[in-house]
Design a protein around this nucleic acid. Structure first.
Lengths: 224, 224
DNA sequence: AATATGTTTTAGGTATCCCAAAATAATATC
DNA sequence: GATATTATTTTGGGATACCTAAAACATATT
């Protein structure tokens, strides 16, 4: 193993992890956009990641990158820290669910394995984070998921919210105030193709609501 | 105010703070030794600190440095974080008193003011840290102290341990196992000048013990 | 085959921190 | 007060880690 990895490297690996959950490989452009840097910077960094010993990504010019096993480990470790921290900040320190992300994003790079161990002991080795996302196990195994993006559902379908993206505080507040939280049951009523709007009912509250793509893309459901 | 300060800058300011608690000014050499860098590096950094806007230190060539009000604020903020974190790690996460320092040293640079606020709420705004050190107030006021270094006591004198240095895990274990913890009452029995050894009794346990300068310099007492 | 698009290379920039060796200033000693 | 010792500063430079614009190049599209 080599020396300790920079926070920036962990950020890149996290992003590549996210982009390669469904896709085979992540392109330079996607990564650049997600991290708000130039494509040239991404090429540069990605080549450095591939040159690490052991390599953190598998890189082929013009063909994008995929994480190596080592790189995935780092990404999952960081993700595990992030999600455990979010839960911890909420449960023990009273952070609201839209406040946790920013703090966790800084702390995730800095806490020791012992810290992780201690908060796991306090939290009881949880399987899902504050926003419903699965937490990689201690052995860095990511549980298989059976979730679909709400964005892809169509009228007549019914789903249970399993998780929502954690990184936009404003959106999280909006979701919470509309009962769009993990566990909520949704019935898709209508779909308008040109603007990708989805009209749906939150079962229980009986509320009907129309959500645009910017919202539905952030919500993940289990079909019923 | 300028941009955010690097962790290294906070480290330098913390060291300068500690060195100027009793002395007027801190010398380049002292700082270099404490941080294990060359004197040239210290001159360099100290000049950069003095060139900040507002300046963080007051620097005169060949005369050492003192913190400005702004620099002291930063040092005290960092110190407050450190001591609150140590307490927090012990009380809430079950860290032992020799484990807390290293973790706090990393976290102190990273936590938000909100995090500070939250752990204060949980801990009940404590005035002293895990090792007895005073914690700067939220307004960054350091309470006046009335402590003497055990190193300077002489036979016949009696003192109450108020605090011990927190940065050497091995020493902390040794101290704990000998009852040399805040609150313990000491009676100085003997002093040998050539090696600076102090023989003393821990009142209560009745234990007699001989401590060298490396130990006595790390313990601070209130005279009785 | 030509064009459009996305990626990589080149060449270089900035920030932050560090250091050895030479020069200089402060201080201690004669 | 002059000299020697010690501490500090300057000089000149190195390392790392990140980033970028513009030019060159590869891939995909038509």
């Amino acid at each position: 193993m080599e020396g300790v990895l920079s926070e920036r490297v962990e950020d890149y690996l996290k992003v590549i992890y996210r982009l390669t959950v469904d896709e085979e490989r992540a392109s330079t452009g996607e990564i650049a956009q997600t991290l708000a840097v130039s494509p040239a910077s991404v090429t540069d960094m990605v080549q450095r990641l591939a040159a690490e010993d052991p390599p953190l990504v598998e890189y082929r010019k013009h063909k994008g990158v995929a994480l190596t096993e080592e790189g995935e480990k780092v990404a999952l470790e960081t993700l595990r820290h992030h999600r455990l921290l979010e839960l911890f900040l909420h449960e023990l320190l009273g952070y609201s669910w839209d406040q946790v992300h920013e703090e966790a994003d800084r702390l995730e790079h800095v806490i020791s394995e012992y810290f992780e161990e201690r908060i796991v002991a306090v939290l009881g080795d949880p399987e899902r984070g504050l926003h419903g996302e699965p937490i990689p196990s201690e052995e860095l195994h990511m549980p298989a998921q059976n979730e679909f993006c709400l964005h892809d559902l169509r009228p007549g379908q019914t789903g249970l919210i399993r998780s929502v993206r954690d990184d936009d505080p404003g959106l999280l507040q909006y979701l919470e105030s509309n009962g769009l939280v993990p566990g909520a049951k949704l019935e898709i009523l209508d779909y308008t193709p040109y603007d990708n709007n989805l009209r749906l009912k939150v079962v229980g509250s009986g509320q009907e609501i129309v959500l645009g793509a910017a919202v539905t893309a952030q919500i993940f459901v289990e079909l019923e």
